[in-house]
Design a protein around this nucleic acid. Structure first.
Lengths: 205, 205
DNA sequence: ATAAAAATCCCGAAAATGGGGGATTGGCTG
DNA sequence: CAGCCAATCCCCCATTTTCGGGATTTTTAT
């Protein structure tokens, strides 16, 4: 059965471009388009699509909020983020709010089809540029640890207590404690055990 | 300068065997032998050797205790354990109590010389059989974790607290606590951080 | 030069861990 | 059957970490 696709974007050219790219594909059923969040919501209420290609910059509401709302109301509808910006913060937020994929507007026909079929299989699709960005951003998270934090991290993994670490790097326990807190935050770890695991997973130890 | 070697063993054949193997070597000065711990201690008091080849089974005292005593009183004297038993628990204890090496009684001339020169350089020498055993034993330590312990270990690494783990595997916190303590012991970890690191290093996670 | 980031320090309370114990049950094995 | 081991549970108590704040001083980068 053909996948029902809908698009929300305030740039007419983009809508037309994608329509012409997809309309003759047997696997795709073109449901229509909207140029703002409100009309998008109105439309999909009566015609739930399988996939929404969703611009991140909408006139009345950010695509990120719209994504969240759609996903809450129509969990069976997949959202693919669409934007000219290959920025990690956007990609991250879209995915966080339930988007299944992310495309840049320079995507060609095959990439769009690929993205649609991938998310329809329940998997996540990121354009190669986007996944590069995500990778970089994550690599940055890795190197985002400061010199001191890395030192402390290594010593924690050795099994030293804060007091011991403090002695060994000649600072007060308070300082080590702060570094530790920052490490937990930066690596999104709940506690020391998870911290060490994540650090090793990310090649920090 | 020739290395002064002394031997303690209650089997005369072994003493003779080693003596004949070593006596014509320019690098070795044969100090003598004892057949029990007491006479060994008496001898070395006046003639401190560089290396003692020490049997693990002595009539008056275990080689393990003797090793400990010798190392405490004569730290400049290296001890090489000697036995027919290739048992990890023996090897482990000897090394723990300060032995620098471990030989099996089927060692040939070159291996004995090798062992002596290695420990004289301050390094540790294990016969290939013994080091195999140590390796195996360590590998066993890995699999020596019980089913439950492995479960708990995995959950600890996920960052769950004891209480959360207890809930998730339907046992009391006390049980989890016990498993955790056993894990720390078995992996020789000082605390959770070290535990996770060691576990990952050993391929347990 | 000035703002941002990193590194340093402190307090205090709640939560979790670490290190001793000890005890019971059920299975398996010599 | 007796002994061992895994798994379960409990107590006590000291130490350590975690989680809230703040706060100050260096560095670093623009």
């Amino acid at each position: 059965m053909a996948t029902k696709v809908f698009i929300v974007d305030d740039h007419y050219m983009v809508i037309e471009g994608i329509r012409s790219l997809l309309q003759n594909d047997a696997e795709i059923k073109w449901l229509g388009h909207a140029s703002n969040a409100a009309s998008c919501l109105a439309f999909i209420q009566s015609n739930p699509p399988d996939v929404i290609l969703m611009d991140i910059n909408l006139p009345d509401k950010s695509g990120i909020d719209l994504c969240k709302e759609v996903r809450e109301k129509y969990p069976q509808t997949f959202v693919i983020g669409l934007s000219t910006f290959n920025q990690f913060s956007f990609i991250e937020k879209m995915l966080q709010y339930g988007a299944s994929g992310y495309l840049l507007k320079n995507a060609d026909r095959s990439e769009i089809l690929q993205a649609i079929s991938t998310v329809m299989r329940g998997q996540q699709y990121l354009s190669s540029d986007a996944s590069q960005t995500v990778k970089h951003a994550k690599a940055e998270t890795v190197t985002m640890l400061t010199r001191r934090e890395k030192e402390v991290l290594a010593l924690i993994a050795e099994g030293l207590t804060n007091a011991e670490i403090a002695e060994s790097i000649f600072v007060s326990v308070s300082t080590v404690d702060t570094h530790r807190k920052n490490l937990l935050q930066k690596l999104h770890a709940k506690n020391t055990a998870a911290l060490v695991k994540l650090a090793i997973d990310q090649g920090l130890l």
